[in-house]
């Protein structure tokens, strides 16, 4: 058995989500290869070669792959899966993985299992459906299994200790169907949401974007990431990359502090696997209290500054 994993990276750094996906592949068993596809990404391949449990790194370094456009990368992955005899193709369930992998699956004429949270056997997996209100056990009937992996469900393998070989892949696919125009990447010194040990999130109750500074002060003291509900994103308080939930980021930190968030099922779907949940809300009936280990019924504009002072 052999698994090909699409490494998540930005041409210079291997993203931690890759390590959780390797863990899923290790649970499946067999050889694990990491595909680093990009432009000027030798450094990523070098990091990938260190990852525990990985036996081979495939490096496809070409201008056509610079922005990992699905139209160019999918044919490469499908070709590798077929010609190099991979039984599994895995990617993290990030926006990159969600964009690419279904295109690969369709080229291979196989289905895809999205967002798996456990490996039951070589062909059977568990995955959440209906915003996590049910967990389905699904058996794949396809010869090549194409799967995205929910990072929070698998403890990452070690980033170091491995010594995989690096092999260059020279095939170039340039479909000329799409081009990269630009990006607005959020810059922050805080930990990434999906990797943070502590998260403090704000909702519509924050009132406006400026008030998120209250949460940032707490975050600074706790080394936390700052998240948000969809309502806060839609209202323009904060950018979309901060959204936690069914259709945003899935997180499971040690501590999740929800401030001015009501606790809609779509939000809970993204954070209810956190180890400890704190809710601060002035409405004692808010559904968020049903999942909170510690609930504080209070006005956030009093409670959050006080919390910051007491930390």
């Amino acid at each position: 058995m052999a698994t090909l994993i699409i490494a998540e990276h930005d041409n210079s750094i291997l993203k931690p989500a890759t390590l959780n996906t390797v863990a899923a592949a290790v649970a499946i068993g067999g050889d694990v290869a990491l595909l680093v596809v990009g432009e000027g990404c030798q450094a990523v391949a070098d990091q990938a070669a260190q990852v525990a449990g990985v036996s081979k790194v495939l490096l496809a370094d070409n201008a056509a792959y610079g922005h990992q456009l699905a139209e160019n990368v999918a044919p490469l992955v499908a070709e590798l899966a077929k010609t190099a005899g991979f039984d599994y193709v895995l990617a993290p369930a990030t926006t990159t993985g969600k964009n690419l992998l279904p295109r690969v699956a369709a080229l291979l004429d196989v289905g895809q299992l999205s967002d798996i949270v456990s490996v039951e056997s070589a062909d059977t997996f568990k995955r959440p459906i209906y915003a996590g209100n049910a967990i389905a056990t699904v058996k794949s009937l396809d010869a090549i299994k194409v799967i995205t992996v929910r990072g929070t469900a698998f403890d990452p393998v070690a980033a170091e200790g491995g010594s995989a070989s690096i092999e260059a892949v020279t095939a170039v696919h340039d479909a000329a169907l799409s081009r990269f125009v630009g990006e607005e990447v959020a810059k922050s010194d805080r930990p990434e949401l999906t990797a943070a040990r502590v998260i403090i999130s704000g909702g519509r109750g924050m009132g406006n974007g400026e008030n998120f500074a209250l949460l940032e002060k707490v975050a600074d003291k706790l080394g936390a990431a700052v998240g948000a509900s969809r309502a806060a994103v839609d209202a323009g308080f904060v950018p979309n990359d901060m959204q936690v939930g069914q259709t945003g980021k899935i997180v499971a930190p040690e501590l999740y502090i929800a401030v001015g968030i009501s606790g809609a099922i779509q939000h809970l779907a993204g954070m209810k696997d956190s180890k400890v949940i704190v809710a601060i809300n002035k409405d004692e009936e808010a559904p968020i209290f049903q999942v909170a280990d510690y609930g504080l019924v209070a006005d956030l504009f009093d409670a959050v500054p006080e919390l910051e002072a007491k930390l």
Binding site: D10, L69, T94, T95, T96, A176, L177, S178, R179, F180, V181, G182, E183, E184, V185, A186, T194, P239, N240, D241, K249
Partner: peptide
């Protein structure tokens, strides 16, 4: 313009 994990990305699609 696409909502991606890191922020926003704009692509030109044929």
């Amino acid at each position: 313009t696409r909502e991606v994990d890191g922020g926003l990305q704009t692509l030109g699609l044929k």
